[in-house]
Amino acid sequence: MTDTGWTPDQPLVSIRDVHKSFGELEVLKGVSLDVMKGEVICVIGPSGSGKSTLIRCVNALNPINSGSILVEGQEVNDPHLDKLELRKKVGMVFQQYNLFPHKTALENIMMAPLKVLKQPREEVEERSRALIKRVNLVGKENNYPGELSGGQQQRVAIARSLAMDPDVMLFDEVTAALDPETVNEVLLAIKDLAQRGMTCILVTHEMGFAREVADHIYFTDRGIIVEHGPPATFFSDAKDPRTKEFLSQIL
């Protein structure tokens, strides 16, 4: 890994004036935000406001058109970026879980540390079993994703990402595809993670959850951040009319 001169007192993720277009459709029109180590931030906003695109840019799943994204001082918007090194530091959980259907829950979790990080099997297995316990799935190790409920699959996906021991986790509307009764178990797993000091960027529609766990909330609309603040003030004294309208519809 190249030495970037990054120190933990600087933002772990620093997004500056990011623009992103899909063809003629500009989805991000100059977004900036900082995430400090150990911070949990939530990005909320109406559908199509660019929030998912924003976090997909952080681990270079989507390339950006202009601006800068620094992860631990490493520039993501750099043609010579070592994407593999970046993705070892940035974990991601998807709305559709995207577990590998031909592998069991435990294999899903162990595969990347074994094949990508080339860590010894015993060590990986021990860590993976501990993660299974942490996301409360003991007994499901040998089940295939198709045999698990949505909430269980999503918790496996969280464990799979954690097995790589990332420095920051991205959550892309991870409860949006779940049945209402399984949403809570996934949120609990994320909350546990946040309390252990994991840096998290969440895109979510769960306002109550955002209020509870977030250190900072960003509200995006039509490709820009229109308002942000800590949950205490964000929900009570929103100034922007669009934020107010959105909150009044949701809360």
């Binding site: 994407k83 995207n98 990402s161």
Partner: peptide, 23 residues
């Protein structure tokens, strides 16, 4: 195969070859 499978593997730092052969 759904693109989500590619993206999940990419996010876990699999190379393209690994994604293709393992996933």
């Amino acid at each position: 195969v759904p693109t989500g499978q590619w993206e999940a593997a990419e996010s876990l730092a699999y190379t393209r070859q690994q994604t293709l052969w393992l996933v």
